[in-house]
Design a protein around this nucleic acid. Structure first.
Lengths: 150, 150
DNA sequence: TATAATAATAGTCAAAGAAAGTCAAAGTTA
DNA sequence: TAACTTTGACTTTCTTTGACTATTATTATA
């Protein structure tokens, strides 16, 4: 676990604890707490709190400003259509991981299915696909599997 | 025993000791420990930790990156090793179907897994793979998935 | 009171850093 | 000599950092 992962879990934990789908928190507080530069928080938000997974982040600057991280609780099927809608025609392994870990967290898929999907879209599986097309093929496989099986 | 063999045993030993079928380790640590270049670790992985031998390896680059070596229990799954042995490097959809029906018949995999695998190796999934490589990629995906669904 | 200055936030973007991956050449061994 | 192993230069990916910018609230001033 690198620092970004730690910050991600912390924020998610906070959201669970406050039992609320909106978390208001100061970026500077997070940066302080994790001894990092404030912009690292933006990186975490940008890579992990994404609309595909029902997260919407707003913010206010100036005195008393803060981040507002909102989690929209969707129905199982909505998460899936949401991901399919927003995901585009390319998919990297790391973004796929983010999707799958979250779906697992929401109990929309089980860990065995995660394993199967990850195997199917792994670089090992795609070693004979041109580097230029890998993320495209990965997206195709991911979509097919999700559409047919979830 | 050459160095690659030593590294191979070391990794396997580690997996036994951690009593876990997943080992997370830094490539740079291994290279350091065995005083070799990091890419030698890739060589060991590529030649000894392959799906046919029941291994699945993931990795993450960047800060905090590492290798994740997963072991699947293939020993008592003779039927699968048989199929993988015979399979060769190419696989058509129809031959895949035959294999899958057999695996289903022997209760080695369930029908949902069959569906997942079929989706992953469907022509729809592989529409962006050159016609020349389709059956090759299909074989790669099939191997990875069959091993990982155990 | 209206406006200007200051402080307190957060945002952006690119560079630096920290891993791992690739590939081919050189070396070894059976 | 063919197959396997070792090496290293170069590439790609992901994370961390920091300088600079933008916005908002508060305080001071005309």
């Amino acid at each position: 676990m690198n620092l970004s992962d730690v910050i991600e879990s912390y924020i998610k934990q906070m959201m669970v604890e406050t039992q609320n789908e909106v978390l208001e928190i100061k970026r500077s507080m997070l940066a302080e707490r994790f001894k990092c530069v404030p912009s690292q928080i933006n990186y975490v938000i940008a890579t992990r709190f994404i609309p595909e997974l029902g997260f919407y982040v707003e913010s206010r600057r100036g005195g008393g400003g803060c981040l507002r991280i909102c989690k929209v609780n969707l129905e199982e099927q909505e998460y899936i259509t949401n991901i399919l809608d927003k995901m585009g025609s390319k998919l990297s392994q790391s973004v796929a991981d983010v999707y799958l870990q979250n779906l697992l967290g929401y109990n929309i898929i089980d860990s065995r299915t995660v394993k199967l999907i990850k195997s199917a879209i792994s670089d090992k599986s795609l070693e004979n696909v041109s580097i230029l097309d890998k993320d495209k093929v990965r997206a195709d496989i991911f979509k097919c599997m999700v559409i047919n099986c979830l």
